Simulated assay, not measured.
Amino acid sequence: MGPQESLNAFLKDVADRPFQWHVWDCFTFTNEAWRAMHGVGWADDWLGRYTEGGLYLRRDALRREFGFRTLDDALDHRLTRVSGLPPRGALVVTEDVQVWVIGAALGISLGLRAAFLGKHGVTTLSINQVRGGWL
């Protein structure tokens, strides 16, 4: 099965899996989608480092932990930013769904739409509603 088919199968499996703090959030959702496509997550070494005592780290604590001033800086360090509309399978960000302490939500490009994790499962937005993409 290729990356696109693996992504489709993954999204079908998790379509109704609701958001759960520290267990199934936008980071773990995108990391597992990436794993389905590529065999490894886009940031496996970041798992568990953005929480402490059952709570998400605040922005200043995130900056100290990861060494980046912004989410985009962290993504630029980890992945390659794409120009124009992000291709299918790219990691994307938006402010048009529920956003958290990072000021945006992480998702995966599906081509003309992008998948994000909502309170009740996977939701999609037009690809025009994302503000950046990384491969």
Rank of each mutant, 00 (worst) to 15 (best):
S109K: 04
R58M: 11
V122L: 07
D72H: 11
N128F: 00
C26G: 05
V97Y: 00
F66V: 03
L79D: 03
D60R: 11
R131C: 06
R64A: 12
D60I: 02
R78C: 11
F66G: 09
P18Q: 09
E5M: 11
T70K: 02
L91K: 05
E52Q: 12
G89T: 03
R59C: 07
A74H: 05
S6A: 15
P18R: 14
G41V: 04
L125H: 02
G48L: 08
V99T: 15
Q20A: 15
L57S: 12
R35K: 15
R78S: 03
A104D: 10
F10T: 08
V82I: 04
W42T: 05
G111F: 08
L57H: 04
A114G: 06
W21D: 15
V82S: 06
R131D: 10
L55A: 14
A15D: 03
V122S: 10
V92L: 04
S109H: 00
V23S: 14
G39K: 11
R58D: 15
V23D: 14
R78E: 07
A9S: 15
D60Y: 05
E95M: 11
R78N: 03
E65L: 01
G67H: 03
L62P: 12
G67I: 02
D76K: 05
V93I: 10
V82N: 02
L79Q: 06
L79Y: 01
L106F: 13
G103L: 07
R64V: 14
E95C: 07
M37D: 01
N8V: 06
R113K: 12
L112K: 10
F27A: 11
Y56R: 03
H22K: 12
L125I: 04
G54L: 12
D73V: 01
M37Q: 05
G103W: 08
L55D: 15
H77I: 02
D96C: 05
V92D: 09
N8H: 05
W24S: 04
Y50R: 13
A9G: 09
T94P: 02
M1E: 15
G107Q: 07
R88I: 14
A115I: 05
Q98A: 14
T30P: 02
H22I: 09
A61W: 02
G111L: 09
D44S: 10
W46H: 03
D25L: 09
F27G: 10
L57A: 09
E32D: 13
A104H: 11
R88H: 12
L135P: 00
N128I: 00
R17D: 01
G103N: 12
G84V: 10
E65V: 13
F29L: 09
L135F: 06
V14G: 02
G39I: 06
A33C: 07
R49E: 15
T80N: 07
A61G: 13
V82R: 01
A33S: 10
Q129H: 13
V122C: 03
A90K: 03
Q4D: 15
T124W: 01
V97I: 14
G2F: 02
N128D: 13
A114V: 06
G41L: 09
S6T: 06
G132C: 08
V14N: 12
R69Y: 01
G118K: 12
R69P: 00
R49P: 02
G48K: 00
R64D: 14
W42E: 00
N8P: 01
